[in-house]
């Protein structure tokens, strides 16, 4: 037996066998990453570091700014501009909820009911991107103009009385009110809600709806217990893609709002470009970033979609 089970002695490994996989192959992924990393370094990391240092500088425009590790700027900025912070979160959240309410049925329709119209509706959703953000927002200025049809209709229906009482509009005007800003934000970010929602709805196997119906779920229960939970990844990414840019937006508040509707984006813009108080502007930017990061983390944790994505 022993002679049979004994394997022939292994041949001395040749040089070719001993060599690890060729070096070029091993480094390829890093070489491929390099352009992207360089781009991020130059256009993201360096400006961030620069801004971080700016936020702890003191001085004046005439004498120049120096890094003095003056962290009090953060506290001063926050205590002076917290209403704008709050307003940003409020407006962005309102716009996000509106986008979800408007976008979900639309995405559902495109995913399940549109049939041969699907592509056309998709193009219509994306079509606004073919014109500039600024132009589109300016167009809303015309739409919501005091003498425009929208205000006329809302006035006739006495809707404006209600919204004014709620503080969303002021008198006979819609323009230069919170409602106008939220409308602008909703309009501008709606596609960012619809697209991820559509993607996750479209991925749902139609047979799951049949299976739910087969297992005694009415259509509304099927939606509540199957469709909506399965579309949660889309809901989460859609709300994030809407809320994050909306919270930092200043164009809508600038064009459609008034001094009473200024968002934190407007404050930062003014500090940087008009007041030229760079440390405060930089500090505000970092506070906004931290606040959004905190809220988003909390939201993702709460929505518990980790194993769905």
């Amino acid at each position: 037996m022993a002679t049979l089970t004994e394997a022939p002695p292994p041949l001395a490994p040749t040089a070719a066998e001993k060599k690890p996989p060729r070096k070029r192959g091993r480094w390829t992924p890093y070489w491929l990453l390099l352009p992207g990393l360089l781009w991020l370094l130059v256009f993201f990391a360096l400006p961030m570091i620069y801004q971080a240092s700016t936020s702890v500088q003191t001085g004046s425009l005439e004498e120049g700014y120096k890094v003095t590790w003056h962290f009090a700027t953060y506290w001063d900025a926050l205590s002076e501009y917290w209403p704008q912070f709050l307003r940003s979160v409020l407006y962005a959240a309102s716009a996000t909820v509106l986008c979800l309410v408007l976008g979900y049925p639309l995405a559902y329709l495109i995913a399940f009911r549109a049939g041969r119209w699907r592509n056309l509706i998709m193009i219509l959703v994306i079509a606004p991107f073919f014109t500039s953000f600024l132009i589109r927002t300016l167009a809303w200025k015309t739409i919501l103009a005091d003498s425009g049809p929208v205000v006329g209709v809302l006035n006739t229906l006495h809707v404006l009385d209600v919204t004014s009482w709620l503080g969303w509009t002021a008198g006979d005007r819609v323009l230069a009110t919170p409602l106008a800003v939220v409308c602008g934000l909703t309009y501008n970010f709606l596609p960012f809600m619809v697209l991820p929602l559509y993607t996750s709805l479209e991925r749902i196997d139609g047979r799951l709806h049949e299976a739910a119906g087969d297992l005694y779920a009415r259509p509304i229960t099927t939606f509540r217990k199957v469709t909506f939970p399965l579309s949660m990844p889309g809901v989460v990414s859609g709300t994030l893609l809407t809320f994050i840019p909306a919270a930092g937006d200043y164009v809508n508040a600038e064009l459609l709002g008034s001094t009473d509707t200024r968002m934190i984006g407007n404050v930062i813009q003014t500090q940087f470009l008009r007041v030229l108080d760079y440390p405060t502007a930089a500090a505000l930017s970092f506070i906004l970033m931290a606040a959004i990061l905190f809220m988003v983390t909390f939201y993702i944790r709460r929505s518990g979609t980790e194993d769905l994505v």
């Binding site: 047979r207 799951l208 299976a211 739910a212 119906g213 087969d214 009415r218 199957v226 399965l230």
Partner: peptide, 20 residues
């Protein structure tokens, strides 16, 4: 009767289990 009112159940070809 719609499916959800029928005393009938189906085992689907690809099972159609609820993934969530």
């Amino acid at each position: 009767l719609p499916p959800y009112k029928r005393p009938v159940n189906t085992v689907f070809q690809s099972y159609a289990l609820f993934p969530h």
